[in-house]
Design a protein around this nucleic acid. Structure first.
Length: 657
DNA sequence: TCAATCCGTATC
DNA sequence: ATACGGATTGAC
């Protein structure tokens, strides 16, 4: 058929299309005619090709209509790329809500939500094992009896509610040593038995592997798929299609799975929502927790935000009454929690010469030695490289502090003058108050060097490292020193005999808003790997709130404190903040154009990389939607007049200050 | 009065 | 990017 003799489809000849153009002023559907030949394939959710402003562009067919409000001539769809309906209508609605919340474009969100097409995968036969033919939802294999949820007073009720298909919402604080993948799998099984679907999002590939195995064990094979980037484009699309074609009721994955199509969603779960991997780095920078909560709201389904730690955002869900708390009672918790003790960084170094070179306080050294003697592994958590190293006296290792304000000093380079991280004053003539020494050294030591030093401190024990380059998933339950950076701690069979949290001062003095919360999260995640009869030693001042919370294993208390402080300071999540980054003139133009809501505070500028600056706009939570709308409109005006200099808009930026 | 050209704007 | 409409210009 040639172009000229195309005729419109008889019924609903209009296709409403989201074109793949990342311009704010074009962020609305455009209507096209559907030819009679495309009538059957042109269903909502399919990919299409259209001519848009003279160019061939891709897009998604959002809906069909009988007529168009558009005054001018309509063009025909160039073609329906494939009859596969990859954009679920519920996901389309979610994507619109996410775009609105983050002042972004629908097309940008759809690019995150629907993986790239892989034509061969689309046409291949469905393997028998993948699911029951005919789209009949399979039922889970094992009959769950409530499993470990009985240990949490509100947990059993939550599980029961899922089985009855009720839209319950909770924040769960897992006990140390908790087999969280198994617990989540039990929730999934209950939800599936009620005839509903489940999405679970975790931060990284290692957590996903554990969850994947737990799902297989609890639900049986063929009930779930795991979506992650590591799988490669064709396998990724294959698994996406399994979900999209509703062959499986449960989808687990890293953050891209937050948009996975699932039929009759009954439960959305995010594990360890404080992990910064949950923040999408591509525009409009949505956070998995917020996307899943929006989704639960739209689908009127159950939601669970969980981890060993608790974020300020999760605490806010509890304090506003949106979610209920699931936590163990004090006695139960005490029976599962290892012994946790703080120890000072200086003064009480162990006498043993090996321990001295490894810079181990004596309490830490004793705990480690005791565990190794009992043939148990020891976990040593050390900071990752890339943090500005703190500085200490080269002679006596007393931490170097600013003579004026007691802030920590930093060395920008090997020959640089030490400078205070708090007040910015240079301390050129620094002399150690303890010994008078004038030489300084960076006191953060990388994982490899720490491993070498620990090897000497504990001769005979094998030393293993787990970090950025090589991450170990598990280690055997026998004597070994395991040095790991935060987030890369392997599980030990039966748990660690001792967990040492070293160089914590470097974590706590980081300047970001979330430094304390993030430190707490990393400690709890590492300490959770200890045996209940094991020991945890944190090298930090016992009077710090984060240390107190760790000693008592009380992430709720700490989160409430953090949230109260952020209310006081008017920081997120108590308020909504958006950041505008770009060249100063572009940012200024944007702010001039934006009709900001009443009471909006404009803060900045803060210098950014590359001749750019950053401005912050702060509003109350009640004005959040208005703020996003105003910023999107301003971006639309700028994109309509082809403003040359880009401005990056981030609502709830992951890195504030 | 009409075509050629320029500029701004919408893009179905 | 491109296509179109309206305004502007210059030649008859």
């Amino acid at each position: 058929m040639t172009k000229s003799d195309r005729t419109p489809a008889e019924r609903q000849p209009i296709a409403r299309v989201c074109v793949d153009v990342p311009l704010a002023h074009l962020d609305r559907p455009f209507d096209y005619l559907i030819s009679a030949a495309d009538d059957e394939a042109a269903q909502p959710g399919v990919r299409v090709k259209v001519r848009f402003a003279g160019q061939a562009v891709g897009g998604f067919l959002l809906e069909r209509a009988e007529s168009s409000p558009h005054g001018g001539k309509l063009a025909y769809l160039d073609k329906v790329v494939s009859a596969e309906r990859v954009l679920d209508p519920e996901v389309a609605q979610l994507a619109r809500a996410v775009a609105d919340r983050y002042a972004g474009n629908l097309s940008d969100v759809l690019r995150l939500a629907v993986p790239p097409r892989h034509a061969r995968v689309e046409s291949e036969a469905v393997p028998e094992a993948e699911g029951v033919a005919g789209g009949v939802a399979p039922t889970p294999a094992a009959g769950a009896d409530g499993g470990g949820w009985a240990d949490y007073p509100a947990g059993a009720a939550f599980l029961r509610a899922l089985g009855e298909g009720r839209p319950v919402r909770a924040v769960w604080s897992a006990m140390p040593g908790e087999d969280w993948p198994a617990r989540i799998a039990e929730l999934a099984a209950a939800t599936v038995r009620a005839g509903r679907g489940v999405i679970v999002v975790v931060a990284d590939a290692r957590d996903l592997e554990r969850l994947d195995r737990a799902m297989s064990a609890t639900l049986g094979e063929g009930m779930h798929v795991a979506l992650n980037a590591a799988a490669g484009p064709s396998e990724r699309y294959r698994r996406f299609l399994a979900a999209s074609r509703h062959r499986v009721p449960v989808v687990v994955g890293t953050r891209a799975a937050m948009f996975a199509p699932v039929a009759k969603l009954g439960l959305a779960v995010i594990w360890d929502d404080g992990d910064d991997l949950h923040a999408e780095p591509r525009a409009p920078y949505p956070h998995a927790r917020e996307v899943l909560l929006t989704r639960a709201q739209l689908a009127d389904c159950a939601a669970l935000v969980c981890g060993y730690a608790r974020t300020g955002e999760a605490q806010l869900l509890l304090e506003t009454g949106w979610a209920r708390e699931i936590a163990a009672e004090r006695d139960m918790l005490r029976s599962r929690t290892p012994r946790i003790q703080p120890t000072g960084d200086d003064g009480q170094l162990a006498r043993d010469p090996g321990a001295v070179t490894a810079r181990l306080p004596s309490l830490a050294w004793q705990a480690a030695r005791q565990a190794l003697r009992a043939d148990l592994p020891v976990l040593v958590q050390v900071p990752r490289r890339g943090y500005l190293p703190s500085v200490a006296c080269a002679e006596c290792r007393t931490p170097a502090r600013c003579p004026r304000c007691s802030g920590s000093l930093e060395l920008a380079g090997a020959r640089a003058v030490p400078t205070c991280r708090w007040c910015g004053r240079a301390a050129a003539d620094y002399a150690c108050p303890a010994c008078g020494g004038r030489r300084l050294r960076a006191s953060v030591t990388g994982a490899r060097r720490t491993a070498e030093e620990l090897g000497r401190a504990f001769p005979g024990a094998p030393v293993r490292t787990s970090g950025r380059d090589e991450i170990l998933a598990t280690v055997p339950g026998e004597a070994a020193v395991v040095v790991a950076t935060p987030g890369a701690e392997p599980m030990a069979a039966g748990g660690y005999g001792a967990v040492l949290l070293l160089d914590t001062w470097a974590l706590l003095t980081r300047s970001e808003l979330r430094a304390a919360e993030e430190t707490m999260r990393r400690w709890l995640n590492a300490a959770a790997l200890a045996r209940p009869d094991g020991q945890v030693i944190v090298v930090a001042d016992g009077s710090l709130a984060a240390v107190q919370a760790l000693l008592r294993w009380d992430p709720g208390w700490f989160a409430a404190r953090e949230l109260a402080e952020r209310r006081e300071l008017r920081f997120p999540p108590a308020v909504r903040v958006a950041s505008l980054t770009g060249r100063p003139e572009a940012v200024a133009e944007m702010l001039e154009l934006a009709r900001l809501p009443e009471g909006a505070e404009v803060l900045g500028p803060v210098p950014a990389d590359d001749e750019q600056e950053r401005m912050l706009v702060r509003v109350s939570r009640g004005r959040a939607a208005e703020l996003a709308h105003a910023l999107h409109e301003a971006a639309a005006v700028r994109s309509a007049k082809k403003a040359a200099l880009p401005v990056r808009v981030q609502v709830d930026p992951a890195d504030l200050f």
